[in-house]
Amino acid sequence: METLLESAATRAHYIAIWRWLVVLAIAALGVSLLPISKIAALVLIFGIAVVKAAMVMRDYMHLKAETLIIHAIALIPILLFIGLALTLIPDIALRH
């Protein structure tokens, strides 16, 4: 059981993460309205999305405290669908 002080610190940490998530969401919106090249906007917007997802998984889903087995279970399907996309991109690029 956590002490009162630890409990308050944990809650403050969760609220701080939420604040960062909202700030990053607003930043992504801002980037989409900026007059910059489409590629730069896409990189920034999806970079922000990856950071937000990593924060939720690390701090709210407690991946930072999980074992190697849980990390492997989470990571393998992500690598699989990234591999699927990378495998198919040359086919599409050559056809179109």
């Binding site: 969401a25 992504a28 919106l29 989409s32 906007a41 896409l42 917007i45 999806f46 922000i48 999305a49 937000k52 997802a53 939720v56 998984m57 709210y60």
Partner: peptide
Amino acid sequence: DVVWIFLFPLLYLT
């Protein structure tokens, strides 16, 4: 929530 974090930029911002 994580799924929506990717769906939002994918469908609304690009």
